[in-house]
Each structure stands twice: as C-alpha cells, then as structure tokens.
Design a protein around this nucleic acid. Structure first.
Lengths: 225, 225
DNA sequence: CATTAATAATGAGCCTGACTCAGGTTACTA
DNA sequence: TAGTAACCTGAGTCAGGCTCATTATTAATG
C-alpha cells in the first residue's frame, strides 16, 4: 500500500526527531552522540544520514520542529476575541512559561543558527513564531490602540528580549515562573499606546488612563446597543 | 631575571588569547582548528594545553577576556559626574555599539556558557560587566530618582534584553547603529522613575489604577465575546 | 662557568566520533 | 516469483582534539 509506506517513513522521521530532541536536550549538542540518537530511534546510525545531511542539519530540523510546536501552542493560548492588551499578556505568559520549561532546547536554538560562513541566519519556524507578536500588535495599531510611530520591530525586541533575559535570570536562580515580570513588561508597553490622537505632550499616564476609560466606555456602549 | 621570565610567559599567554580570539571570530567555534590557533600564536599545538585544559576552556578564557575589556570600555564611556539618566544613555550607546561591532564574539559568548552537565553558568567577567548597569541604577534609586519597587534585575533584563535583540535585528538587516532604539528604551525607563520624589504611594496608586482598569477591560472583553 | 635540577615546549601518534559506501533487505509490480 | 527500485545497515575511514615521551630552555648551586 502506498499510503502505509509513506506513513511508515513519516513515522520513522518523526521518531528520529523525537529521539534526537531528547538526546540533544539531555547531553547538549556536543555531548549528543549520533550512535545514541540512532539507538533510541531504533535505526542504524547510517540511516540518520538518509534523512539529514549531517549532525548540524539534524539539529536544525529538531529546533525547527520545536518552534513549530511552540507557534501552534501560542496560537492556542490566545483568546480569539480578546483585546490587544489581553492577547499580549497571554502571549507573554505563554512565552515566559515555554522559555523556562524548555530552557534546554531554547539554549540549543542558538546552535542551530550557526553555520560555517553565514553570519546571521534565522530558521523559518522561528520567524513564523515571531509573527504571532507582530500580528497582535499590528491589529492594535490598526485599531489605533497602539502608536504607529514606534516601529513594530522595536517593540518586538523589547518584548522578546526582556522575556528571554528574564527567563535566563529566573532559571539561573532556580526560580519558577514570575508573573511580576509580565506585569512590568505590559506596564512598559503602555508607552507604545496611542496618546490621544492629535493632542501631543500630555502626561502619558494620565493619557493612558483616559484611553483606558475611553475603551471601556466604548465596550459598554457596544454592549448596550 | 625573574621578572623577564614571568613577563615572557604572560606575553605568550596574551598572544595565544589574541590569536584564539581571531580564529574563533573568523571560523566560529566548530570551524576553529587548534592547529591554526597554535600556528598564529607561533607555538606548538601541544603548548596550548599547558595554558588551557582543552578547547572549551580556551574559549572561555577568550570570552572572559573580551568581557573584561568591555567592562573597561564601558566604565571609560561614562561621564563620571553625569546624571543617572545621562549615564544610562551612555551605557546603552556603548553597549549597542559593542554588540554590533563585535557581533561574532558576542554570539560565541553563549558557547562559553555551555558545559557538559551544568545547566546555567555565567562567566565571572560577564557578571562584572552587568554590574556596571546595576551600579548606575542603584545610584538612581539612592537619589530617589528611580523607583525602588521594581527589582533592579527586572530593569536590567529589560535593558540588556532589548539591546541584545535590537542588535541582532540590526545586524541581520545589515543596518548600522540606530539611535532611535536607545531613545525608545530610555523613554520606557521613565516608567521606572520615582514620579514625585519623597512622596510615596503616588506611583503605586497610578499603577493600581492602570491595573484595575486593565482588569475591568479584560473582563468586559471576555464577556462581550 | 660547569653541572644539575626544574620548568617549559614540542609534535608524532593515539583515540573518539561524525560520516561513507558496498552490500543486504524490503516493498511493490507484472 | 522474478525483477526492480527504494530503503537500510554497520564496519570501516578519517579529521581533529588531545596526550606524553622526548627535547630545549632557564634557574639554582658550588
């Protein structure tokens, strides 16, 4: 049967990636032995090279798969009709949790970027993951909730950069998830909010309060109509 | 002469580190050949192992040296009697510039942290470098310019995290130093300022208002969907 | 300034582990 | 069930990090 054959191959490939993920996470990239990965995937060492050109590309496949799963999880964690701020908070929660829980693979991710010759590379699935943030924020800008004057990439770097560093700090200290990191981050993001279109120079805090009230008011109005 | 002998040894060691830095930066950690490093340092391959136990520890020595120099540079870049904000700005400038200019070694830094078995490590000189930020900010808190309610480590993670991610973005795009990143970052840091020095509770109140509003908003949004 | 001891440097060769390939096995077709 | 294509295997190759017996250099001593 054609289907069965293909399915067997895909199962084998998936099996290999699962085994490789485990070994890389346990022993690190350099500590991981191809022989061990093969043993766990229940195939011969040479077979690995039918699926992946070398150790480096196997690593890239592992990392790529990980981030694909992460994107799936992130999308699932967002409340579909939540406000922009709500979704940002949910994404931050999800991201920080993932960074802490899968710290080993996250660290290994930087190894997948390395490649003799090329200075900076980015795996397609990481790019995809980052787009989740972009999509939320672009919606915010479209709704004029967020300021269009700050480039999205800068907000993104604040978002992911802060969370990654915080995760490292927490893990190094053997601490668990800390919600205050996220509260703080979201507080900072108030800066990026639309400051009453047209009127410049008002105190941002005040403006934010007025903005929030305006949004709440509009929610109420929508509801009653 | 005793001194000459010691000096010769130290010069040799320094020479080795310089050669190793160059080769690591050019070829990456995996691409770097011990034979090539030895050749450039004008010593035999075996001699390297009299100074450093193995390739990994040579790498750590290289990275450690790099960050020591960076700390020296950072301290020199600060105007000794400048305001806290002024010094933060100077540090941000210096840091972002360094991240971009020495991108290769910065990337390699993460490799120096890796070590079979240990999950999270930190090189002493990186810890030292990070203290530059801490010192500035603690002065700010002492002067009651900055809010003591947000932990210093969280501000630090925002600071370094944002700059690192921004640097990566800029390098990937082949762009040069971008001052707007720093302006934006410092704008965010306004959040951490003591709103009215001496008067406690004000910032907290405002913050609480924002929190309360955010909660109300999220409730409303969830409900209406 | 010999002589000896101690310290430093060398590089040919060892050893591990990623990767290859000649030969075997399985799945499918006629 | 023979033929063929696709797939798998693991013993063997080889690059490159590292060792260590040997040699070179320096310091100490009489």
């Amino acid at each position: 049967m054609n289907t069965t054959q293909r399915q067997r191959l895909e199962a084998r490939e998936e099996n290999l990636l699962v085994a490789a993920t485990a070994v890389f996470a346990e022993s690190g990239v350099d500590g991981a032995r191809m022989a061990e990965i093969a043993r766990r995937a229940d195939i011969a060492e040479g077979t690995i090279y039918l699926y992946h050109k070398n150790k480096q590309e196997l690593l890239e496949a592992v990392v790529d798969r990980f981030w694909r799963e992460l994107t799936r999880g992130a999308l699932a964690a967002l409340s579909p009709h939540g406000s922009v701020t709500q979704q940002l908070k949910e994404l931050a929660h999800y991201h920080l949790h993932s960074l802490i829980d899968d710290f080993k693979i996250i660290e290994i991710t930087s190894r997948a970027r390395e490649r003799q010759g090329e200075t900076g590379r980015q795996l397609p699935q990481i790019r995809e993951y980052v787009r989740v943030f972009d999509a939320i924020l672009e919606r915010g800008i479209g709704l004029q909730e967020f300021d269009a004057s700050t480039p999205v990439w800068q907000m993104r770097d604040v978002f992911y950069g802060t969370l990654e560093h915080s995760a490292r700090t927490l893990v190094l200290r053997n601490q668990a998830f800390d919600a205050s990191v996220i509260d703080n981050l979201l507080l900072l993001f108030e800066r990026f909010r639309q400051t009453t279109p047209g009127v410049e120079g008002q105190t941002t805090t005040e403006t934010s309060i007025m903005d929030a009230l305006a949004r709440i008011e509009s929610h109420l109005t929508k509801k009653s109509s």
